[in-house]
Design a protein around this nucleic acid. Structure first.
Lengths: 102, 102
DNA sequence: TATATTAATCGTATATTTACGATATAAAAT
DNA sequence: ATTTTATATCGTAAATATACGATTAATATA
């Protein structure tokens, strides 16, 4: 894109659009739902119930970690993931508010 | 991506993630807000208040038209855009519902 | 009719995303 | 100590997104 111009927009717009981007893939929405249902989940379990390779799932998990809506905790050789509900609610709240009365 | 695997997920997830993608750029969020405030807006006006070129704005408008949340009407040499509020509410409703109780 | 205006589209460059095999690392099991 | 298991990361290929100048097409105006 030669040079992104996203930074020319307000912090609010950047924040909401970054969140929207983080949930703009069905695999990531699926992972969020899974973690909401199971409360927490081992990485291997996520890979098992997903039609994607381990490397690709790991990449999606990284995206969700980056925006902060999931948290990963290492348990021996395994990785246990859970939602950061506070963070998730923060972002969904912002998004919902933005679209209120539209 | 060699071959996208999005189609392997449910229709619901694809629909919500497609909507999320359509609002995953600050310029597009900005255009939505603008149309909500002004009710309708000539393309040239949108270009004027946006830090992007005419071609780029036109491209973003195309994205929003594609998902269906805005409608364009040709008026002589100008193009007049407005929100499709019903469609927008449809998508925001789906998204909000998906994130309810998470 | 000739010129100006508006906005969509084309062509193109670069960045980012998506996908996965291979590898690395660290812990667990043998 | 060796092997197995789990997962993050690297490298890479292909697709898609972002950005814009140039062009096109259509209408409006001089």
């Amino acid at each position: 894109m030669v040079r992104s111009k996203k930074h020319k927009f307000s912090k609010e717009l950047i924040e909401i659009s970054d969140f929207a981007k983080s949930i703009s893939h069905p695999a990531r929405l699926y992972i969020i739902k899974l973690l909401a249902e199971r409360n927490e989940c081992i990485c291997g379990e996520i890979v098992k119930v997903t039609p994607l390779s381990q490397a690709t799932v790991s990449q999606h998990l990284k995206e969700l970690r980056k925006i902060g809506i999931i948290i990963g905790r290492i348990e021996g050789v395994k990785s246990c993931y859970c939602l950061d509900k506070k963070k998730l609610n923060y972002y969904t709240g912002k998004l919902i508010k933005y679209f209120k009365n539209k």
